[in-house]
């Protein structure tokens, strides 16, 4: 459905009259998501995963690389066609409160895009109304009780469902969910995750799931792929459960170690390792592995030579890739 090759994004900003600073947010990543499939990008905040999502949704332009939506290269079509292509990719924002206009009711927010759709489809008002009800029902809301409400009258979970319903009005082929549940109460998260999973199954919508929460990625995209991204670079990728159960890159292992252990129900993996250092964002360390400053297994070669993605199916970029047991194991019921 969507193919990305060598996507690169460089932000440059003026830091003085003569100086220009550039930040490499995305450093050449490639992936593809089949229709109804799922790819999860996992990484910390500031690792470039949000930028990838925004580029795919057409909100920012790539510095380099090829994006194909439905087989069409977006850089080789007219701007009108490009707009139409990007309309099939809808972004679900992290903060549903930001993503909804506080001055407009749920009904108004849904009807606007539907009117545009109705025009292209040459259908009437009754279609608009039916469709508004349909998308609201699809996301698990009762149209009658929410359609006249304003965003501030809804709970976090309901708001995110409205955002998803609004995205569905334009019949997208791909949803980009950027930390879509991280602002929602944990107790309500699972409901939204299940909704995203249902949309994949029932409407064959492809999902790019951007998150720092490995468990959420596993829940919505167990049959898909996980890509671990660090400072704009993919460090490890593969089938979801393969990466989670057999992580080979120390960074993936750190991310998996960070998943809280439920005391009494689980015991922490023997190799659990949580780096206490924060991510380096300065650009001065460019040679060698980007993770080197936080890696417990780093040796001299890691500082000198950048590792490349290697492997079949399950790829990782590490000189000393090795499966380690970091995932918490369920306690056998007694």
């Amino acid at each position: 459905m969507i193919e990305v090759e060598n996507l690169t994004k460089v932000y440059s900003s003026k830091s003085g009259i003569f100086e220009r600073q550039s930040v490499r947010a995305v450093r050449g990543i490639s992936f593809h998501i089949p229709a109804g499939g799922a790819v999860s990008f996992i990484g910390e905040s500031g690792c470039g995963k949000t930028t990838v999502g925004r580029i795919l949704a057409g909100l920012e332009s790539a510095s380099e690389g090829v994006i194909r939506i439905g087989g069409q290269d977006v850089s080789r079509v007219s701007s009108k066609e490009r707009q139409a292509l990007f309309r099939t990719v809808q972004l679900i924002h992290q903060d549903p409160y930001q993503a909804l206009n506080p001055a407009r009711s749920v009904g108004q927010s849904l009807l606007d895009p539907l009117k545009v759709m109705a025009k292209t489809k040459r259908v009437g008002d009754s279609w608009i109304r039916d469709r508004a009800n349909e998308v609201l029902t699809m996301v698990g809301l009762d149209p009658n009780s929410v359609i006249h409400k304003y965003p501030h009258m809804l709970s976090g979970g309901q708001r995110q469902r409205i955002v998803i319903a609004r995205a569905l009005t334009v019949e997208p082929h791909v949803l980009v969910a950027d930390e879509a549940v991280s602002m929602i109460d944990v107790s309500l998260r699972l409901g939204v995750l299940r909704l995203l999973r249902n949309l994949r199954e029932k409407l064959n919508i492809a999902l790019l799931f951007i998150t720092h929460d490995v468990a959420a990625a596993r829940y919505v995209g167990r049959d898909g792929e996980v890509h671990v991204i660090y400072r704009g670079l993919i460090l490890e990728k593969g089938e979801t459960d393969d990466v989670i159960q057999h992580p080979q890159h120390p960074y993936t292992q750190a991310l998996l170690s960070a998943v809280p252990v439920l005391k009494g129900l689980e015991i922490p993996g023997p190799d659990r390792y949580i780096p206490l250092k924060e991510m380096e964002t300065r650009e001065d360390v460019e040679t060698g592995c980007l993770f080197v400053s936080r890696c417990p297994f780093a040796r001299d070669i890691c500082r000198e030579k950048s590792p490349l993605l290697t492997g079949e199916g399950h790829e990782m970029a590490c000189h000393f890739a090795q499966v380690r047991n970091v995932v918490a194991m369920p306690v056998v019921a007694d």
């Binding site: 944990v186 107790s187 309500l188 699972l190 409901g191 468990a215 998943v259 439920l262 689980e266 918490a328």
Partner: peptide
């Protein structure tokens, strides 16, 4: 609350969403 936590091991379908709103 405990059931609503998606896990990284075991069957993810064991996680069940909590009903209703806060």
């Amino acid at each position: 609350l405990i059931r609503a936590i998606p896990r990284i091991s075991g069957n993810p379908d064991e996680a069940i969403a909590l009903n209703g709103s806060p």
